[in-house]
Amino acid sequence: MTTRSLPPYARLLGIVAAPADGGATLAMPFGDATLGRPGFLHGGAIAGLLEMAGVAALDAEIAAGGRTVRIKPINMTVDFMRGGREATSYALGTVERLGKRVANVDVVAWQDSRAKPIARAHLNFLIVDDD
């Protein structure tokens, strides 16, 4: 997953590919575009990072399998566990199952420590053959 392949919405939030050795899929440095109430990340920006990391993880899994398909989000459930502070956030997407028609993806986001997640999401995607 390269930054170049991230869509305009991800670039608006400042989302970039995470360092290869950090165990994350994507990173989102703190910036005005992510600010909610003073001193805290907006929950919507966290949700955006979670969604983009889920899509990135699924794209990678699909590419690894040599398939050419389109993915469509069906739904997304987010638990907010800690307030996000003015720091870089990281997100790791895990494809729990990639089937013929549906993919189930879990994503976790953290700042200082992976052991202290700020939010997690579960996303379901529809897989559509690209022909």
Binding site: A10, H42, G43, G44, A47, G48, E51, M52, M76, V78
Partner: peptide, 10 residues
Amino acid sequence: ASGPIFTMMD
């Protein structure tokens, strides 16, 4: 993207 809709509904 679905993220902006998430933020709006939040």
